[in-house]
Design a protein around this nucleic acid. Structure first.
Lengths: 220, 220
DNA sequence: CCTACCGATCGGTAGG
DNA sequence: CCTACCGATCGGTAGG
């Protein structure tokens, strides 16, 4: 009953042009003309797919689901993508890049290590819980992802998590606390926020503050 | 590469007879005879299915996978079960009952609230990470479970989590900490331990101690 | 417990 | 971008 029915909310997110991996053919439509370019169409598809993957997971999202929301037939989708797996990897990688940029941006304005941690937590919750920003809610769910793809995803995720490794390295934690599992536990909570978060009682910043409150320990 | 290949470890777990929901027909085989009874066969199937569900999730586990490991054809499985959904619900409920019993047992021997919390954490990690005890590693993954079933699972899980509500209610926490999200965060970590735990560096009790170390805050 | 089969759905392709 | 189709796989049933 919760997260199944089609959601008609597709915000304008990670439309960061500069396509890297190259599915779409040549495209040099004059900007300003009424027609949508091929790469714009492709970006729309990426967003739609991202939404569905986030809602239902990799396996439970069919190529036909994606095609339908994009207003085309399943076969036509293959003009824009090479495979379901490649589509997922591309979405995942772009989402992590966008998330990394956002987190780096907010911690840049902080002075103390604990401030940085809290700002990073707030931003992560925002990313994970805001349906407008399909930046990722994926990040996990690797169980339903085919093994061939999994390694690439994990490598990318480890790269992202380096941001948190650095934040945590600067914290004046008691020596009894192991920073590695500290990081693993914190990231697990942030990355799966969409699974445990209940709307209503507390705001995102309040929850971030609770998390930091729990994880905050000063060295004796 | 990680959790796909068939695992040949099927321990003797939650063989708690006293079958409740009733698939298997009448069965009154003399104990001690060499023949396996119908209910024993059914328990084997439950274990096999539990292992597969835990490894791959609900959707990624096919009825044919389960049948194959049980040494029979897919159709034959339906002599023992009514549906894949019902099978999952039954496994889930039995697993939670077994887990609840184990956690209640270990905390019964503790005197202080923090001792109780740590004992409960150790036991939960043991339950989640020990492949011999397919007591559950499910508990989550509800995303891939059909909506019709989800409600029943959630109700059962909430019942289980009451144990932790009680433990946490007794902790002398600072008033700034919200016990509800404290419980949600802690349970999220324990329940998904199989997803973030890396074998090798730290033992389960050491990790439980780290978790309690992080979550331990005494009221001023 | 098996064989044989059902309708549905999957990711993907050919050929326009 | 579409039609039409592929082989594979799914949960489940009939009829023994």
């Amino acid at each position: 009953m919760t997260q199944d029915g089609p959601t008609m909310s597709e915000g304008a997110v990670h439309r960061g042009r500069a396509a890297s991996s190259g599915q779409p053919k040549s495209d040099t439509r004059a900007a300003g003309s009424g027609e949508a370019s091929v790469v714009e169409r492709r970006d729309e598809i990426l967003e739609i797919a991202a939404t569905l993957f986030a809602e239902r997971g990799y396996r439970a999202t069919s190529i036909r689901d994606i095609a339908e929301r994009a207003g085309m037939k399943a076969g036509s989708l293959y003009y824009h993508i090479t495979s379901k797996e490649a589509l997922f990897v591309e979405i995942h990688d772009k989402a992590l890049d966008a998330a990394a940029a956002r987190v780096r941006a907010v911690i840049a304005g902080c002075r103390s290590p604990w401030e940085r941690l809290e700002a990073a937590c707030v931003e992560m919750l925002e990313i994970q819980l805001n349906p407008e920003s399909l930046t990722l809610p994926i990040m996990n769910n690797f169980r339903s992802v085919p093994d061939e793809v999994k390694d690439a995803l994990i490598r990318k995720r480890d790269e992202f998590e380096r941001i948190f490794r650095d934040i945590i390295a600067a914290l004046p934690l008691p020596s009894a606390i192991d920073r590695t599992i500290y990081r693993i536990l914190l990231l697990r909570l942030l990355n799966t926020a969409d699974e445990w978060y209940r709307e209503g009682r507390l705001t995102r910043p309040e929850i971030a503050a609770q998390i930091v409150g729990i994880f905050r320990h000063e060295a004796g």
